[in-house]
Design a protein around this nucleic acid. Sequence first.
DNA 1: GCCAACGTTGGC
DNA 2: GCCAACGTTGGC
Length: 159
Amino acid sequence: MTRARHYWLMKTEPSAYSIQDLAGAPDQTTCWDGVRNYQARNFMRDKMQLRDGVLLYHSNANPPAVVGTASVVREAYPDHTAWDPKDKHFDPKSSPDNPRWSMVDIQLDAIFDRPLPLDELRGVRALRAMELLRKGSRLSVQPVRKSEFDAILKLAGKS
DNA sequence: GCCAACGTTGGC
DNA sequence: GCCAACGTTGGC
């Protein structure tokens, strides 16, 4: 018995790591390290499963936009970058014995021919309840409804 | 660079 | 457990 695919949106600042960087990575796969927010971690650690669908979003970009899709190819495991004092996301309260932060691996599926700017998404009826569009929304890993995922693919010409 | 909206920290 | 102070996110 297989379970239904679930869907997510993950934010990244393209100046730090862009979807183009993912396209150039070995196997077009990367570990999603550096998440240091409990709610976002909990989604990755407790809910994400193999083959789940991911929308990739460029935040702090011009314009901010959904830029493509990926899939979960490895379920949650400890984020070892939290143990590295030299890492930007070092957290002294996390240790190999008691890891505080988790990450998953994702593999690129598609880069949209046309990025879908935040501004445009705000005008789409099917996306009215989307977490990304909520005022003050800051969650860097967030659930997406299948209807929303499908609507995005359609806008991107990928359905 | 500004700043609103958050999330976290730590004194009490 | 409250909440003020502080730090961060992220659109603009």
